[in-house]
Each structure stands twice: as structure tokens, then as C-alpha cells.
Amino acid sequence: MPDELTPKPGEARPGTDSGLAGAEIEPILTVPPVVGAPKPHPILVVDDLTRSFGGLRAVDVDHLEVERGVVTALIGPNGAGKTTLFNQLTGFDRADTGRWSFDGQPVSSPSPDQLARKGMIRTFQLTKSLAKLSVLDNVLLGAPGQVGERLSAAPFRSRWQGQEEANVEQAEELLHRFNLAHMRDELAGTLSGGQRKLLEVARALMADPVMIMLDEPMAGVNPALAQSLMRHITELAFEGLTVVFIEHAMDVVTGISDWVVVLAQGRIIAEGPPWKVIHDDEVIDAYLGRRRAGAGS
């Protein structure tokens, strides 16, 4: 169902402080690099979030704040719980315990579609392309507030055609940006793995997110295109979009993120600006697989 609260492209997003981006010094730089540090303009605040699978504690986060309008990287070794954390926050998996608030509102009963309509849009590590829909339709599905998605308006083309045409224009722009314009009318199922990743990001951006959560968006995408994708994402962050992305490649992380959160065995072991975090002993240990005495407790 369409959500009247979702702003149309071009309109100011509610709660977005337009003076934030481009200020003399980014407020995030004033935040001390300690785990659980409060942020000046948090869009997401998480408390005591846990999730266990049998005896395994996949996620165990005491406190996490995500700053609005910046690019935050979530890193950590395989199996650290990054995807599980995403699933929890976006309502795709139930959390055992925990509270969180998004965009100033507490998330009481997390349901994926409700959160998405509030502007929390995620992509999946294992891409979910809609195989028998055209590439263009995949992207168009992301468009928020399309009246024609209501059954009462669906049979009457005149009621949704104008909106559809505007959406097509926006979708084509996105496809062009992600080198998919030539595939516009192909079925999405015919795309390669990397192209599907790109399509999913395009679709998520089409949904006009307030915060976009990308689970390894660059995996399998060729480096040049990955570069342009990241550049696009930083541009959007500059315009006020909040970006959280999971990534393993350190050069990408240091290249575009303003803030890095490190997860290992479900716990946040470090956070801070990239150049500080990558020199953190505990982070290096987590990546090299060594366990320090007391770590993970």
C-alpha cells in the first residue's frame, strides 16, 4: 500500500537537516571512536539487541547509533553476524531481545514492509531479482506511492499512467547510471550475477530511501563499475541519504565510508573513522582470526 508520508523525489525528507551536509566540519568527526558512542544526529538507535541460533549468539549488540546523512560501513569476518543484524533491524528476522528506533520513532512491531515504507530500504547479500519481470519493471516496483498498486485504481490506466511515466523516467536514469540501460526490456532472470547486484541497488534507490542498507553491494561487480556505484552512493549521502553498507574489501571501506562499525562474533568490537579503525589491534586480530584473551566475552 502506498504511504503518503514517503516524500516524492526532490522534496525535502522529513527530519533531514539540510544544513548538515557540506558544513565546515562534519559533525561525525567530532564523535570519539569508542563502541556505543552517541552520535550528534542519530537516525537509528539500537539497544540490547540479541539473536541466537541454538547455542550460537549471532548478534549481541549493547548500543549502536547510526549517524544521519553519512556513509557507515559495517565490517567483520565471515559469520560475524552482519547479515543477521540487518535482518533484525529491517524486520526480516525476529530479534530475541532488543529495542531500536528509526528516524525518531521507536520500532515496536518490526514488519519489513512497514519499515520500508518509512524509508528503511535494504538489499540482500544473495540477490533477489524478480526473474520473470523485465529489468525496468524490477526498478519500477521500487517506486513508492504508486496509486496503481491499489486494486481500486488498478483497472483505470488514466489514474496511474502519469505517475508511471515519471517513474519510468527516473528508473531509466538509474539503469543508465548502473550500466543496465541496454538491458531495460530483458527479463531480470537473464542478468549476470554482478548485474543483478546492480539492479538490486537501483531498485532500492528507486524506493526513495531515507536510509539504505546494502549487504555487500559490490560483491561480484567489476571494479570500475563498483567505483562508479560507490561514487553515486557518496553523492546521495551528500544530499542527505543515510547509507549503511556491509563490505569485506578494505580499500572500498576506507575509500568511501565516514564511519566504520566492526562486528565480530555478534558483538561490536570497535567503531570509528576508517583510518582509526583499521589500525585497531582488536580489529586486526578479528580479521586474522586470532583471539585475544577476553575478546568476545
Binding site: 500500500m1 504511504d3 514517503t6 526480516f92 514492509d113 530500504i121 533477489k128 524478480l130 521500487g142 532500492a204
Partner: peptide, 8 residues
Amino acid sequence: DATRSLGK
């Protein structure tokens, strides 16, 4: 799930 993730 993909459909849900786009707010439907």
C-alpha cells in the same frame, strides 16, 4: 521477500 523489502 524482495517485494516486502520494497514496502509492499
